[in-house]
Design a protein around this nucleic acid. Structure first.
Lengths: 136, 136
DNA sequence: AAATCTATTGACGTTTACGTAAACGTCATA
DNA sequence: TATGACGTTTACGTAAACGTCAATAGATTT
């Protein structure tokens, strides 16, 4: 049992087209293995693709999603000292968390307002039903 | 004290350009009054504009935002009976609420994962600090 | 062997949400 | 009066995220 998928299999699993997966790869979001010319997607690529879809549902651009996913990859000790790198990462995470909490607030507000409208609808429906019952 | 704003005032208040407000109007999201050729934005338009911005933060397209905002406008008894209209509205609201709850779940998941990464960072930083203290 | 399925790389087309420039009107102020 | 500041319409440009061919190639089925 091989845990790697062909592009067709992955498109069916995720509900996206092959064009999309290749485009994401072009944008540096995925890097499937190559067997000859064909692509093979392992668990890591599959996970990443799922994260891309989640990011898209949240309205992030592919560029932003690439950055966010990048936060999961440890900052492999490039330059400037590990502590500094870690602090930079923490700062970036804090930024993203701020955005997400703002979105959550927006959602709560919208849900409340929609609930208000829905309640009004149900009230009015109840009125109509009562009137109808009275006529009977 | 007039509660209506010129386009320039509203752009400054919302942090968007005049081009943007005119485009939103083109797309049927706003309908400011006209005095001669100039636009005047009242409280209703201002509120709508704020709703547009909120919708954008949530990743909705302008077309979707138009529909969502439309849910707030009562279904002025067009055709098919009021009860039917109300039921349709309730259905649409339920759909949108489903989307929003999905987004909320996505946010919670992402926040949790980012928190995990952040915790790892802080652990590692603590390690480094301890090592440094020992050397002193 | 022929047909079919799956995959590949270009390359151009499309939609969304504006940016940007041109060319102009209107009013207050220096 | 002319010089900004602010507003208008019209029109073309652009970036993002793919869709949609076209032409080609290997693998599998009939």
């Amino acid at each position: 049992m091989d845990r790697t998928l062909t592009i067709g299999a992955l498109t069916r699993e995720l509900g996206v087209t092959a064009r999309t997966l290749r485009f994401w790869e072009d944008q540096g979001l995925l890097e499937p293995l190559r067997v000859g010319t064909k692509r093979l997607y392992g668990p890591r690529e599959r996970t990443r693709a799922v994260l891309v879809l989640r990011g898209q549902r949240l309205g992030f651009s592919l560029a932003e999603i690439r950055e966010i996913i990048g936060l999961y990859d440890r900052p492999a000790e490039q330059g400037g000292g590990e502590a500094r790198q870690l602090q930079l990462l923490l700062d970036k995470i804090a930024l993203r968390e701020g955005e997400l909490k703002q979105k959550r607030q927006d959602i709560e507000a919208t849900l409340k307002e929609l609930d208000g409208v829905a309640a009004g609808c149900r009230d009015r429906l109840a009125q109509l039903a009562a009137r109808k019952a009275k006529r009977a």
